[in-house]
């Protein structure tokens, strides 16, 4: 499948997951890069099969808190950091599975357990964006795509890496 088509599928998968499971969705944001005002929570989930690769999600801390509160049906102020991390791991897991099912409907794959990575605390970033990237290996080539969505539900910020 052309990489340009994968961008659309990733966005489609994320939109469905956010709407049905996390009670939020995609919308437009300004996409401007500014110094970080808050840490970025980072999770990744690797998958094996055809294709093999990994999906990563990077979420501003406060956005992560809101997503977790939506998912748990809890008050954002009472949601612990540990629970937020678990929910963002689950977000990674579901988006990854949903995306892979769209890419390779006939192939079996195995998702490994989502992992939490050290948070990012510096650098110019879109402070309101959730960013998701998918990178996979297939024989000798490697490709990936990414998009982001704003806290008020997202700006697409698509890019393609070969």
């Amino acid at each position: 499948m052309p990489v340009s088509g994968i961008d659309g599928l990733l966005e489609e998968a994320a939109a469905e997951v956010l709407e049905t499971t996390f009670f939020t969705g995609l919308s437009e944001g300004d996409g401007a890069l500014r110094p970080l005002r808050e840490p970025l929570l980072r999770t990744r989930v690797a998958f094996r099969g055809s294709p093999s690769g990994r999906l990563g999600i990077r979420v501003p801390a406060e956005t992560g808190r809101q997503i977790a509160a939506n998912f748990l049906g809890a008050d954002a102020g009472e949601t612990s950091d540990g629970r937020i991390a678990e929910v963002i791991c689950e977000l990674s897991n579901v988006v990854c599975g949903s995306e892979l099912s769209r890419l390779e409907q006939e192939s079996a794959f195995e998702l490994l357990h989502p992992e939490i990575e050290p948070p990012e605390t510096s650098g110019p970033r879109d402070n309101q964006a959730v960013r998701c990237s998918l990178v996979w290996k297939r024989e000798s080539w490697r490709s990936g795509s990414n998009w982001s969505l704003s806290r008020e539900h997202g700006q697409k910020d698509q890019g393609v890496n070969r």
């Binding site: 897991n93 579901v94 599975g97 949903s98 099912s101 409907q105 006939e106 192939s107 794959f109």
Partner: peptide, 9 residues
């Protein structure tokens, strides 16, 4: 309950 929707699984 799983993200894996392949017929095989």
């Amino acid at each position: 309950v799983s993200t894996d929707r392949t017929d095989h699984r």
